[in-house]
Design a binder for these strands. Structure first.
Length: 716
DNA sequence: AGCACGCCGACT
DNA sequence: GTCGGCGTGCTC
């Protein structure tokens, strides 16, 4: 009897065996539809074997092996298997999380052809087409000149021309990607490119450490070109979905004739499935995307690039909690190709590897553009120059000077809304979210209180619900409030606020960026969203308003995030010929973080943080994992964790287990959350422990508690 | 995770 | 008398 071992998208830590008429090892990686209880599910064959541990009478027959997809390659399955083992999740869950949504469903995927060619009849028909048949004529003329990619004509036209026999499906045309290098590399860029190019064909991890404007992208482009020249593909991961269109355009402009595929969650399902299949068939030269693109089924990756590798969004925060950056390194290692991790402010984990020589350190110490200086960083002491409506006198003067010179200023405040808290002036009541342990944020425009963690919204109350006082005071400052006070202070200036509220509707952000570049705004007020990606050549001043808040955060990663954020936002200043200036308002100008920042000294800052981490026993000197529990009542979550700890397998000496504690944001979406932290000096010891513990946890009944393991957690 | 089965309250 | 509440148990 032939048995299929099938990975299914269920939260059970095992595969399932099914009877099948005939199957061979070549069927491994194929999609299969199987009965599962009363349901019908799509799974992936991970093994074909002759016998099963399951008693024969319990084995059911598989419904059908599908061939809408070429079998998933062995190296892809190995990546999925590694992910499942490392992050302690069932293989089926990992495989299905890595597949595009359309391929998770049991219905066979029916996609039209990828390209069309013209027929003899079609050639003859061009001349006879009525003049009003514009779309059909255009399609036929395109086809007469070569082939028509399916995505360049509408489905209706394609159907019509196929029905008339004027066009026929054909395979995607062969590509001859070229590479355009319009200007010479700086010597640092050239050295980096050379080092990476020399490593092509072997595994090598490189940290490309380069400040904003040092031309990391140019290095990516050149090494991608080198991989393409070997007949291989490039995989490029970026943190932000907003950054993909621009980067895709940039790659397209530089690689004429290449097929560049974007894989992000913003790509509609059908297109994503089509793109995924094109990648699998080897029709994509460059795959560009967010963290999920790390699972793109490239047949012959030649290089893997992770831009802004320190960015927390590479870590998936639900479901399979993988780090796309770490998987990118694993993938490069397994494929025997170089991986480039680029950042101005790398994660301490990566930086530490570069210091020990495990990763190759490639540095771009200067801005690439001739004469473009680093911005001058100044700390403004709020104790001697107090803020008035959030902005101190020296920053206000600097803004005024920009207005007079016709240049732009950016005021950076990483806090959306009007005010972060609403307080009762009489009894000190504050408006809290009913579902989260967080304050509701005042949004004045919509006259609403909103929770930034769960999305809960309610009208602003007229009076205090506890004492009836009508004097409710918005306390603190968000971008909306800053916008209002700045507009009042500079009544003749054009002020524009950029945050995820003002850019809600898609497309607006691109439009806003264009109008900023066109000079429609003189003072920009923005959050994080402004710090990334777009360059504004006329922007010469960045003012940072409330950075100190992050200095007192309980999270030990807060300083490194703050440093990265401030480096990134200061990189917005003075990119073109005009020199930039960055003013940071602070009450702690002597703080080592700010001192390192004004010197643009990431390496000094990182060295210091690494010493602190080593002293305190934090990553990268230890490896961490946490068991989290969520329940309606905190007591239930804690009790679950206590039981889990009591029943845990014996601890290796290298592994330390801490007591259950509530998360920093203890209540989220009406779930009370707690966790047990594990630290270990050895990754292997931690993995061994987690494997046994998770077997045990999957075996126990959780009751009303939801739980998961997070390996290399970023949130506490 | 689904989905069914299984026993106890308010409705045609 | 039944529709349906969600507790618990299973899925090759």
């Amino acid at each position: 009897m032939t048995i299929l071992r099938v990975a299914l998208d269920v939260p059970l830590p095992r595969t399932f065996d099914y009877r099948v008429e005939r199957a061979t090892p070549a069927d491994v990686g194929r999609r299969v539809v199987v009965p599962f209880g009363p349901r019908k599910l799509a799974g992936i064959v991970v093994e074909v074997c002759e016998s099963s541990e399951v008693p024969p009478e319990r084995l059911r027959a598989a419904h059908a092996l599908l061939d809408d997809l070429a079998p998933l390659a062995r190296d892809w399955l190995a990546l999925a298997r590694f992910t499942a083992e490392y992050y302690q999740r069932p293989l089926g869950e990992v495989i299905h999380a890595a597949l595009p949504p359309r391929l998770r469903r049991p219905e066979p995927l029916r996609l039209g052809p990828t390209a069309y060619a013209i027929t003899q009849a079609g050639r003859a028909a061009i001349a006879t087409l009525p003049s009003r048949s514009l779309a059909r004529r255009a399609a036929l003329e395109l086809a007469a000149a070569g082939t028509v990619p399916a995505d360049s004509i509408t489905a209706a036209v394609a159907r019509d021309l196929l029905a008339r026999g004027w066009m026929e499906p054909c395979p995607a045309p062969p590509r001859t990607p070229a590479f355009i290098a319009p200007h010479a590399l700086t010597s640092a860029q050239a050295a980096a490119v050379e080092a990476i190019r020399a490593a092509l064909g072997t595994y090598r991890a490189c940290l490309l450490l380069g400040i904003t404007g040092s031309g990391k992208t140019e290095v990516y482009l050149h090494v991608a070109a080198a991989a393409l020249a070997r007949g291989q593909q490039a995989l490029v991961l970026v943190p932000e979905i907003n950054l993909t269109p621009r980067l895709a355009e940039e790659f397209a402009a530089r690689f004429p004739g290449a097929r560049i595929v974007t894989l992000t969650s913003a790509v509609p399902d059908t297109e994503r499935a089509r793109a995924w299949l094109a990648v699998q068939r080897g029709e994509a030269d460059i795959v560009l995307g967010t963290r999920l693109a790390v699972f793109a089924p490239l047949p012959a990756p030649g290089i893997v690039i992770v831009d802004e590798e320190h960015d927390a969004s590479f870590k998936q925060q639900d479901g399979v909690r993988y780090s796309a950056r770490d998987l990118a390194v694993f993938r490069a290692h397994a494929a025997g190709v170089p991986v480039v991790l680029g950042s101005a402010t790398p994660s301490l984990e990566t930086y530490q590897h570069a210091l020990t020589g495990r990763y190759t350190l490639l540095e771009l110490p200067r801005r690439a553009r001739e004469g473009a200086a680093l911005p001058a960083m100044r700390l403004v002491d709020l104790r001697t120059d107090p803020a008035d409506d959030g902005v101190c006198a020296s920053l206000a003067a600097a803004v005024r000077a920009r207005l007079e010179r016709g240049e732009q200023s950016l005021l950076f405040l990483n806090r959306r809304g009007y005010a972060p808290v609403l307080v009762c002036g009489a009894c000190a009541w504050t408006a809290g979210c009913p579902r989260c342990s967080a304050h509701l944020v005042v949004h004045l425009g919509e006259r609403a209180l909103r929770c930034h963690h769960c999305g809960h919204a309610q009208p602003v109350p007229r009076a205090c619900p506890t004492c009836g006082n009508v004097d409710l005071v918005p306390f603190g400052r968000g971008t909306q409030r800053l916008e209002a006070s700045v507009a009042a202070r500079f009544p003749d200036a054009r002020v524009m606020r950029i945050d995820s509220d003002s850019t809600r509707n898609r497309g607006t952000w691109e439009a806003m960026a264009a109008s900023i570049r066109a000079g429609e705004a003189q003072i920009l007020i923005g959050t994080q969203i402004l710090a990334k990606g777009h360059d504004f050549p006329n922007l010469t001043l960045v003012g940072v308003l409330n950075a100190d808040a992050a200095l007192v955060a309980p999270d030990y990663r807060a300083p490194e995030r703050l440093f990265a954020q401030l480096m990134q936002v200061s990189g917005r200043a003075g990119r073109a010929d005009a020199p930039g200036e960055v003013l940071i308002q602070t009450r702690y100008p002597e703080h080592p973080l700010y001192q390192a920042l004004v010197r643009h000294d990431f390496r000094g800052f990182a060295q210091r943080l690494l010493e602190e981490r080593e002293q305190a026993g934090f990553p990268p000197y230890v490896y961490e994992a946490s068991l989290r529990a969520e329940a309606r009542q905190m007591a239930d979550a804690i009790a679950f964790l206590q039981r889990a700890c009591a029943g845990a397998p014996p601890l290796d000496a290298a592994v330390t287990m801490f007591d259950p504690v509530p998360l920093t944001l203890a209540r989220h979406n009406a779930w009370e959350r707690a966790q047990v932290l594990l630290q270990a000096g050895s990754r292997r010891a931690l993995q061994t422990f987690l494997r046994e513990w998770s077997d045990m946890l999957y075996g126990a009944k959780p009751g009303a508690v939801r739980w998961h393991l997070d390996v290399d957690p970023l949130e506490f």
